[in-house]
Nucleic acid binder design. Structure first.
Lengths: 211, 211
DNA sequence: CAAAACATAGGGGATTTCCCCTAATTTGCA
DNA sequence: TGCAAATTAGGGGAAATCCCCTATGTTTTG
């Protein structure tokens, strides 16, 4: 770590008290200075464009632009600012999305402040950071996702199920036997690890966006 | 209509050809001039903030910011620019959402250009515009929505159904007879005008956000 | 080319949903 | 206070689902 020059941090979070507290904490550290703290994603993006901080610590849920929107813009304009998400979200899907958009670290707000310092130091060295717990969850999630390889016919069947058609109706529109649709249905439930129509519809509506 | 001064129009749509065509059409009219045409919602918002056109003709599906996002900002900053949505979407829920966010008119892209002129003239007079067909659909939709008065127990039952529980399992967690859950289910399907589990889950996931 | 995966279709049966109906209590509101 | 709505529960039966299984032809892939 360069002693003569503090690393420049931007904070974006729509909760003012949290923001002030975080700023104070970070500024106690010798290696970091907070150059700006803002309350929404648009302000964050403006500040990042203008000042290119070393690290942007972003909330996900923010007014106007979300943290996802901001990191997307950073990637688009190839800015050197590295993003750390600091969010209350515990949903592994959200976390996966954030990291795949190009963030270097993801911390939950309930983690210790030391974790943030650690994350910032690692991120500056070009490494990503994730708590051990989240890392486990994430790899399980990504592993489970790749097994969701639905075949073309299974996808078609699923989309009809999600639209509310019965097996008989699906068989008619796809010009197939009801038994074939029943098979697709069984295979879908096996692959997606659900037990009934409700689970299939849930998957179709929540995990994919094209229904 | 003021003859000496043309009304200033902004167009936002991510399809360039459509945009150019629309600009040409509008500029043939004597009463309107296109001050800007842009390809995404962020550019639209910037231009609206800067120039406050009389009317913004917006697509809904656009990069960076959606048309919904733009109209939300216009409302938030109380700008005088009036929004007309011009979209391919035919889904009455989308249309309802757009109008309830504060748009003055909604036109489908497949409607005649004259409709747009008519809509623009009405919008300038502070009136909203909707094709007769869409107006009928919309009032039916809004009427049907208010009848979706689900009782407390029906709502509970629905949320369990949407989570994938069977009637038997729901009966257990709610300490009721399976037959009671079956009744709730039947009543739900009647009220929501769907025919099966898939329809119930769809409603729970798409019409409410707390699942 | 051979193996694996996919798509098709059927048997058969347990379980669940779907959809009528009746009916007793309880709750809420005018 | 009284009536309407809500909640509970059940009978009964048709339909659909869920979940095993086998089997044959096609397509994809190493």
């Amino acid at each position: 770590m360069n002693i003569t020059e503090k690393k420049r941090i931007l904070i974006a979070d729509d909760h003012q008290i949290f923001r002030q507290g975080l700023r104070t904490l970070i500024e106690q550290s010798e290696n970091f200075e907070v150059i700006s703290d803002v309350a929404d994603g648009e302000a964050a993006w403006s500040a990042i464009k203008k000042n290119t901080p070393d690290i942007a610590v972003l909330d996900i849920t923010m007014p106007i632009l979300s943290g996802f929107d901001v990191v997307t813009r950073i990637q688009k304009y190839k800015l050197s600012t590295k993003v750390i998400f600091l969010s209350m979200h515990n949903d592994i899907k959200i976390i996966d999305r954030g990291l795949s958009l190009g963030a270097f670290a993801y911390l939950r707000k309930d983690e210790a402040f030391d974790s943030l310092i650690k994350a910032m130091e690692m991120v500056l060295r070009g490494k990503s950071y994730l708590s051990a717990e989240l890392e486990t969850q994430l790899s399980e999630y990504q592993l489970s996702r790749v097994n969701f390889n639905l075949t073309k016919r299974e996808q078609e069947t699923l989309s009809f199920i999600a639209k509310g058609l019965t097996n008989k109706e699906i068989a008619e529109v796809m010009c197939l036997s009801v038994k074939t649709i029943d098979n697709h249905r069984t295979n879908l439930m096996g692959k997606l690890d659900v037990r009934n129509t409700a689970g299939l519809v849930r998957y179709a509506l929540l995990e994919t966006m094209d229904v």
